[in-house]
Computed example of a mutant assay.
Amino acid sequence: MDRVSVVVTTKNEARNIGACLASIAAQDYPREALEVIVVDNGSTDATKAIAREYTDLVFDKGPERSAQRNFGMLEVATGAYVMFLDADMILSRTVVRRCVAALAGGGHVALHIPEIVLGADFFPSVRRFERSFYDGTVIDGARIIKKDVFAAVGGFDTALTGPEDWDLDKKLKGLGSIGLLSRYDFDAVDAYVANLPPDGIPGALVAFEERSGLDTPLLFHNEAAFDLVRYLKKKTYYTGSAEAYIAKWTGKNPDDPDIRRQYGAAYRFFGVFVEQGRYRRLLSHPGKACGMYFLRFLVGVLFLARKARQARA
């Protein structure tokens, strides 16, 4: 049985880390073949203490998540496959097993895993709707990778903060294809997560396939406590490396198709939401669509404002 190393990066995540690690421990994959690594970045809360309840492999590393991930995935991990998660993510029970099966038999070097944003309020539901369009596109990012391939491309570019996932995907595609673990019925999943009771949510997500009746392995991302100002600050922070990322790849190909889609208004505002029949989902949820475009507009304005400031500097 191939070993899988799951690397979780943390910083003051005492509220979330327990549920994340519990979902890894609950995987229907042989425990002896599952290695859990937590790479912390100077937490001052109980994050590391909670993490040590699940694994002895708890380390300190900074300054950013790319360096944390590289440390865990390149220097510590012993698995044939490496997966990286944020502390506020929860895996449904079959994700690891199905990822290994897909990578072992599908010819891919890495996989995108469908990511479901949690939360019953309006903006979390809008974020869940928006995220559903990105699976398997250039807006997505691989979550599990063959270890030898990850090492061959040098891991994450630690000079980038924000687009490092996209950068990694582009490097991986130079050695092989990236697959999509699964596809799902948005309306069914949306209804399931929106109606979860406040108590017992982690268990309900781990047991998603059994309780929902949907045979679909998924990754759940907890954005229930959505704050618009914090969301926009985070998005602005992560656009800081955009110019470096764009220059890196357009220097090799001035008309790089991935860059054109990732940063071009035509694709980010329209193309990704209508291609491959996705326009049907867009039209069937006008309220969520309006909320999504409102957020996309704000993020776009902040991105352009940042570019303008950089041009004046």
Rank of each mutant, 00 (worst) to 15 (best):
D165S: 07
D258F: 07
I246Y: 03
L295C: 07
S92Y: 08
L103Y: 04
L214R: 11
K307S: 14
V100P: 01
P217N: 02
F226S: 07
D185S: 06
L302Q: 07
K147W: 12
A305C: 05
V38E: 00
P257L: 04
V95F: 01
T250F: 02
V58K: 05
T94V: 11
Y279D: 06
R281S: 10
V36K: 06
R69L: 13
F220I: 03
L160K: 13
K234N: 15
T47S: 04
A266K: 09
Y279V: 06
T78V: 11
L111W: 01
P197G: 04
K170P: 15
T158Y: 01
F294H: 07
G271H: 08
K252R: 15
V4P: 05
G179E: 05
G179N: 02
G287F: 12
N222F: 12
A244H: 08
Y237L: 15
M292H: 08
A46I: 09
V38L: 00
A51Y: 06
D190P: 09
G287A: 14
L214Y: 11
L218W: 06
K248H: 05
R93S: 05
T55S: 12
G141P: 12
R97F: 04
K170W: 13
F150W: 01
A142Y: 03
S43F: 02
T158S: 07
P163M: 07
E243L: 06
R3T: 11
R69C: 12
G291R: 04
P254S: 08
S284T: 07
L168G: 00
G174W: 10
A313T: 13
N41V: 01
E164P: 06
L228T: 06
H108W: 09
L228M: 04
Y293M: 13
L304Y: 13
R261Y: 11
D121A: 10
F294N: 05
N222G: 09
V206G: 05
P163T: 11
R309G: 09
G271T: 02
L219W: 05
A33S: 08
V272L: 10
T137M: 04
F150I: 01
F133G: 01
K307C: 12
R15V: 15
L21R: 00
R306S: 14
A207L: 13
A204M: 07
L175I: 06
R93L: 06
E243H: 06
A152K: 09
R281V: 10
Y81P: 00
M83F: 03
D140S: 04
A194I: 13
M1F: 14
I116A: 02
I145H: 00
G106I: 15
D187Y: 08
A308E: 00
R31A: 14
D199Y: 11
A142Q: 05
V76S: 12
R309V: 09
D121L: 07
F133R: 03
A87I: 01
K170M: 15
R306V: 11
V206D: 05
G179Q: 02
R127G: 14
K248Y: 02
D140M: 02
K233T: 13
Y231M: 14
A204W: 05
F270H: 12
A26H: 10
D227P: 04
T44L: 13
L118I: 07
V7K: 00
F133E: 00
P114T: 01
L160C: 14
L85I: 09
G240L: 04
